[in-house]
Design a protein around this nucleic acid. Structure first.
Length: 216
DNA sequence: GCGACAG
DNA sequence: ATCTTGTCGC
């Protein structure tokens, strides 16, 4: 299947690949968890993947690649803008991540195929989405305490969860990407965010890709 | 028809 | 995503 150029083609790709999403939890606890993010400066971009030890949260590897945008930002087709560069970064890694923590949605997407599903299906690696804001779906109030969660519902189905990682902070939106259950995805996010609102994986990946832009 | 709309 | 100072709170 060719890489799409138009929105119509891109949607067709999503409809095709969505059938490859595996909703079964891999069961095995990952040791190497990766955070992925992309930064932009006009048409220039830098994609970063930072791998952390799941228990100590210590960085064990990272890769940053620079390039240019090949697809515009279109709500619902966000993955086509970031996937090429992120796959390139993943290939430069000297380590194979066992979990991808993506900066965006997984199943919490209009066609149930957000960035996390896309990267998961293409790599075969378990993946989850951890977004700063919702895209589709709504949820009820959640307790003020860190660890509180609320189902994210869209079209009558649970597509993810609003997760409060720290007391009083705005929730992070977690959804399944590939080969991980929602419960496991939530547990991973809470464990990866012991101090700040966002998981350490996304915080480090965010810093890494920004640096990759400036010193490039 | 009018907004909303991951990053 | 990115443009952007000070400011309220712990």
């Amino acid at each position: 299947m060719e890489w799409p150029t138009t929105a119509v083609e891109a949607i067709a790709v999503q409809e095709e690949l969505r059938g490859h999403v595996d909703l079964t939890d891999v069961g095995k606890t990952p040791r190497y968890v990766a955070g992925l993010d992309v930064a932009y400066d006009g048409d220039r971009l830098a994609a970063a993947v930072v791998v952390l030890d799941r228990d100590t949260l210590a960085e064990v590897d990272r890769a940053v690649v620079r390039g240019e945008t090949t697809f515009p930002y279109v709500p619902g087709l966000f993955a086509f803008r970031e996937v090429p560069a992120l796959l390139a970064a993943l290939e430069q890694l000297g380590t194979t991540p066992e979990l991808l923590v993506c900066d965006g949605q997984g199943l919490a997407h209009p066609r149930r195929f957000g960035l996390a599903c896309h990267l998961g299906v293409l790599t075969g690696i378990p993946a989850i989405g951890a977004a700063k804001t919702t895209f589709v779906g709504s949820h009820g109030e959640l307790a003020r305490e860190g660890g509180a969660t609320a189902e994210l519902v869209d079209g009558g189905e649970v597509v993810g969860a609003a997760v409060r990682t720290q007391d009083g902070v705005k929730p992070v939106y977690v959804s399944v990407g590939h080969r991980v259950s929602l419960r496991t995805a939530i547990d991973h996010v809470l464990r990866l965010a012991p101090r700040y609102r966002l998981p350490e994986t996304t915080r480090l990946a965010d810093r890494a890709c920004r640096e990759g832009l400036s010193d490039g």
